[in-house]
Simulated scan of single mutants.
Amino acid sequence: MKVFLSWSGQRSKEVAETLYNWLPQVIQAIEPWMSSDIEKGNRWGKDVAENLEESKIGIICLTRENLNENWILFEAGALSKTKDAHVCTFLLDISPTDVKPPLSQFQHTKFEKKDIRKLIHTINESLKKTNERSIPEKRLNEIFDTFWPKLNEKLVKIVKKVPEKSKKIRTDREILEELLEIQRFLLRMEEREKVEEIEKKLDKMNQELIREIRENLYQLGEMIKDIEARLLMGTL
């Protein structure tokens, strides 16, 4: 199962990288995905769009400095439109009350052992629903407790880092390319929604057709019974 890790900013990226390496140690059946480039504007492309569409779990890595970043908001919105996807935020050094709409609509995972354990169980439940290789609950708790100290140590170091204050100024060309890629992705999402709507309509038409055929067959059967009865009675 693919897990999409969304980030923006250096500390957020380090959180995503930490989860990228740690999650498969706890649940081997999951496949984390994140872009490794530093600048969001430079890393958007076909790979990001495809992985957004394929992911069943989305984890949005939030820090104090990226709560209102456009890319975080966009990727969160794209993940929420993915069919049957579970999207949550991972709060490094902030509380749920710091998160404003639209990000506040998602389930929050705080940097606390019990919350991260809950996230792991949520991912494991998603594996069960898709008939993938999940882990028995007791065994999962044992694995989590084994690997928790390593995750905690790395995240504590990230929390202590001073947030970056300056951002690289992007060129007009970079911004234009970014907007074009967003537009292409939205068009693909729109086309997919149209296809799903057509499939639903066809399914409804097929059900109505089957029901009509059954009714006609029933009426035909009744007519045959009536004819047979008349033949036996000699009235035909």
Results as ranks from 00 to 15, higher is better:
191 E>Q: 13
164 E>V: 12
130 T>I: 09
121 H>G: 05
101 P>T: 11
180 L>T: 08
1 M>S: 04
135 I>T: 03
65 E>L: 09
13 K>I: 04
144 F>K: 00
100 K>D: 04
167 K>L: 09
30 I>M: 01
134 S>E: 07
137 E>F: 11
64 R>C: 05
118 K>G: 04
191 E>C: 08
76 A>W: 01
213 I>G: 05
123 I>L: 03
51 N>D: 15
153 E>I: 14
154 K>R: 14
41 G>W: 03
153 E>S: 15
60 I>Q: 00
54 E>M: 07
126 S>C: 07
106 F>K: 05
30 I>W: 00
205 M>D: 15
6 S>L: 02
165 K>P: 10
91 L>M: 11
149 P>R: 12
97 T>H: 13
73 L>E: 02
167 K>F: 08
6 S>C: 13
170 R>G: 09
7 W>P: 00
151 L>A: 03
116 I>F: 02
14 E>H: 15
121 H>N: 08
141 N>G: 15
113 K>L: 07
22 W>S: 03
218 Y>C: 07
179 L>K: 15
177 E>M: 07
151 L>G: 00
17 E>T: 03
199 E>W: 08
49 A>T: 07
1 M>P: 02
114 K>Q: 13
84 D>P: 04
204 K>L: 12
236 L>T: 09
88 C>N: 04
34 M>C: 05
28 Q>G: 12
58 G>V: 00
234 G>C: 07
109 T>M: 04
50 E>A: 11
96 P>C: 11
133 R>G: 08
106 F>P: 01
10 Q>D: 10
185 F>I: 02
190 E>F: 11
158 I>P: 01
174 E>Y: 06
69 E>F: 10
45 G>A: 05
197 E>S: 11
170 R>N: 13
64 R>W: 05
24 P>R: 01
28 Q>M: 11
118 K>Y: 07
88 C>R: 03
215 E>D: 11
52 L>S: 02
194 K>T: 10
235 T>G: 06
160 K>M: 09
201 K>M: 15
77 G>K: 03
198 I>H: 13
141 N>T: 10
